[in-house]
Design a protein around this nucleic acid. Structure first.
Length: 706
DNA sequence: CCGTCTACGTA
DNA sequence: CGTACGTAGACGGA
């Protein structure tokens, strides 16, 4: 067997843009799909050799290496396993530059990610070299250049070559050390996951390459509508706010301001505030439980640590007389060129004098959970809960404000995100990252296409259209995949029975919750989060929610028993092992005083999320990828996967063929699990296919079962 | 300038 | 004691 370690360097493009505040922001395009980027150099080394080869492809000073292309392709043709650190990047470049390789791979970043078993640690080559104590001889002169915006194409060639050869060398030694580590008895069960993720990498490269086609005319219209709505809301909200605060300037985009406006109180000392109410986060950035306080002490603490905000009247600063500056003279009596800011108005030229009238909407927080580090929480869910005690004007303001916040997000994050990352070819090549999420599912960035508002309500989806004249956008979703995955993993017969009988678990959730009391009815969509909460170890909520969670655990007793089994496994082995071979480490698992197992929510959540969307979906997508590759006559292309779906840009006339391929591929999990995990995975699955002219207007055309 | 906090959205 | 993500803007301390 011949093992080839390879690494490419490429030019990058710096994209600068101005946001709506006038701030200049930038991002760097490292990929091969921008028309400006090009391949600078390629280095490779055979495992077992002392030294490798290095080739110049295109560099400002250095002549391209003679016969570089032939030598590189020859090596690729000879190799049995291609190795690299973040090999997806190198393969994308090789493919775009006309090289061919589609054989087995070993990405050291993927392998290390699997070995980490869900723990977070740096996956940079440098960090791994330290961890495995392999030589990292290269003197890293490139960082300084890169920081100054000098790319590999413009650095002195001897630095590029030294760095490149060093990288290949380090990766070679890392590969050997890492392979030996995975071969150890304690780790060898991870090989199937490593191999699966390497195989799946090809499907990801295909999707990143194909990307999604954007209709800029349509996007422009949608943006214009949003901007109009945003401006209107801003006017109305400003007016409403101004009416209750006097002359104080309105700053709608500031959470500090909103907190003070809604609750009519200003925090005296933010650090003290956090301390008193126990507003802290753990190392992962998650909220820790806050100080438990009964009503009375809570209100006393509120009063002690904040002051009531008063309406103001504006007047010219009495100290500087409205100049904003105070005259200052040198020793010789001549004036300074620039006078310092006025100490009273701080250069604002005006001062706001409090009146005796309370400012703002005078909302009352119910408990510590309505607070935030800066003052009072102003997010939509919390505010919604306070709505029923609020006066009409406050309620109207809050409702408008929620929409204002949402529209701001739609414009900045979604519309402008799409605009700035879409290249000149009109295609959005978002990144699908394999080594980020602890559970093993993908993440998406540049921009994130995994968090677009769902379904048929978000007009921005209308701007995602087929790249083919008369083409269609097709989407296939697994139905209730995580619920089914939990059913499989737990072996719960009640879950299985419900699936076999076509019981819709979310409707069951909705009906159970609605039947409990006279609170307003929830919809099936609302009920989804309630279905999943107990599945993932959640138990807190309103009385009717808690009632449902209890009944869920009682009904699906197999799931409840499985939760106990997982906790025992985590306690005794500090690990949880999935049928695929994927593992999660819980080094801190221990039983606390009250019997609660530390980390329970992750112990019961990760296996469900990871098995469904990290182990199964990739196999389904990979199967579709293979089927599409095998059909060289088809022109349709895979675009993206969003956790439990797969989206394809369909060439006119290929609708039926693609529907068949996508359903057969996604339902092909028994054979795929056998191939990759040596697992006889038999469980009823459902795939629903929809199609339309864009990603907004979609009609369901098929529902298939295995 | 950079990290923290808040808020938005998804499966 | 639902979990897993990415992005943007405001703010405050270096």
């Amino acid at each position: 067997m011949r093992y080839l370690v390879l690494d490419v360097e490429n030019s990058v493009t710096h994209h600068e843009y101005t946001n709506r505040n006038g701030d200049i922001k930038k991002h760097i395009d490292m990929g091969p799909y921008g028309p400006k980027n090009y391949l600078v150099s390629v280095g490779f080394q055979w495992v077992g050799d002392e030294e490798g080869s290095y080739f110049c492809i295109k560099h400002n000073e250095q002549q391209p290496t003679l016969s570089a292309r032939e030598s590189i392709q020859f090596a690729l043709d000879q190799c049995d396993v291609l190795i690299g650190h973040n090999l997806k990047h190198d393969l994308k470049w090789l493919h775009e530059c006309g090289f061919t390789y589609d054989g087995p791979t070993h990405c050291t970043q993927i392998a290390e990610f699997v070995l980490l078993r869900g723990r977070k640690a740096s996956l940079k080559l440098k960090s791994l070299a330290e961890k495995y104590k392999v030589s990292d001889k290269k003197i890293d002169l490139t960082e300084g250049y890169l920081a100054d915006g000098v790319g590999f194409e413009a650095m002195p060639w001897d630095i590029v070559e030294e760095y490149g050869r060093g990288d290949v060398n380090t990766t070679t030694e890392l590969y050997i050390a890492q392979r030996d580590t995975i071969d150890e008895d304690d780790n060898k069960g991870l090989w199937p996951t490593v191999r699966m993720m390497n195989a799946f990498m090809y499907a990801i490269i295909e999707m990143e390459k194909n990307g999604i086609s954007v209709d800029f005319d349509e996007l422009g219209k949608i943006k214009a509508d949003y901007i109009k709505e945003h401006a209107q809301l801003q006017r109305e909200l400003t007016e409403m706010a101004q009416a209750v605060i006097g002359d104080t300037p309105v700053r709608l985009t500031s959470n500090d301001f909103l907190s003070e406006l809604l609750f009519s109180r200003k925090v005296t000392d933010k650090n003290k505030w956090k301390e008193v109410f126990g507003i802290r986060k753990d190392h992962r950035g998650k909220d820790l439980p806050r100080t438990r306080m009964k009503n009375k002490p809570f209100n006393v603490a509120l009063q002690r640590n904040s002051t009531v905000t008063k309406r103001t009247v504006v007047e010219a600063c009495p100290i500087c007389d409205g100049a904003g500056t105070l005259p200052k003279f040198k020793k010789d009596g001549s004036p300074y060129k620039k006078f310092p800011k006025c100490t009273r108005c701080l250069g604002e030229t005006v001062v706001y004098t409090p009146t005796h009238k309370v400012a703002g909407f005078k909302l009352k927080p119910t408990d510590v959970n309505d607070l935030a580090a800066h003052g009072f929480a102003t997010n939509t869910d919390k505010l919604e809960r306070l709505l029923h005690n609020a006066k009409d004007e406050a309620r109207l303001f809050i409702e408008k404000y929620a929409r204002y916040n949402a529209v701001s997000s739609y414009i900045s994050t979604f519309v402008e995100g799409i605009e700035r990352y879409t290249g000149g070819d009109g295609i959005l090549h978002t990144s699908l990252n394999q080594t980020i999420a602890s559970t093993g599912r993908l993440s998406s960035s540049g921009p994130n296409l995994h968090n677009q508002p769902r379904g048929n309500t978000f007009p921005v989806r209308r701007a995602f259209v087929s790249r083919f004249d008369g083409g269609k956008m097709l989407k296939a979703d697994y139905g209730q995949l995580e619920f089914r995955g939990a059913g499989y993993l737990s072996g719960c017969t009640i879950v299985r029975g419900d699936i076999d009988n076509g019981v819709d678990v979310h409707s069951y959730t909705r009906d159970t919750i609605n039947a409990y009391d006279n609170e307003p009815d929830i919809t099936r969509q609302d009920a989804k989060s309630d279905t999943f909460k107990p599945l993932y170890g959640g138990m807190s909520g309103s009385p009717r929610q808690v009632n449902y969670y209890k009944s869920f655990l009682a009904k699906y007793s197999g799931v409840t028993a499985w939760h106990e089994k997982l906790k025992t496994e985590a306690l005794t082995t500090k690990r949880v092992v999935l049928p695929s071979g994927r593992e999660y480490a819980f080094p801190g698992a221990q039983r606390l005083q009250g019997g609660y197992v530390k980390g329970t929510t992750q112990i019961v959540n990760w296996p469900v999320q990871g098995f469904a969307t990290g182990d199964l979906v990739p196999l389904g997508v990979l199967s579709v990828y293979r089927k599409m590759k095998a059909r060289t006559d088809l022109k349709s292309v895979m675009m993206i996967t969003v956790h439990d779906d797969l989206e394809i840009d369909v060439y006119p006339g290929e609708e039926e063929e693609v529907t068949k391929i996508i359903t057969e591929g996604l339902l092909d999990l028994n054979a795929m699990c056998m191939e990759f995990y040596n697992l006889d995975f038999k469980y009823p699955l459902e795939v629903e296919v929809s199609i339309g002219p864009n990603l907004l207007d979609q009609d369901t055309i098929a529902t298939e079962h295995n």
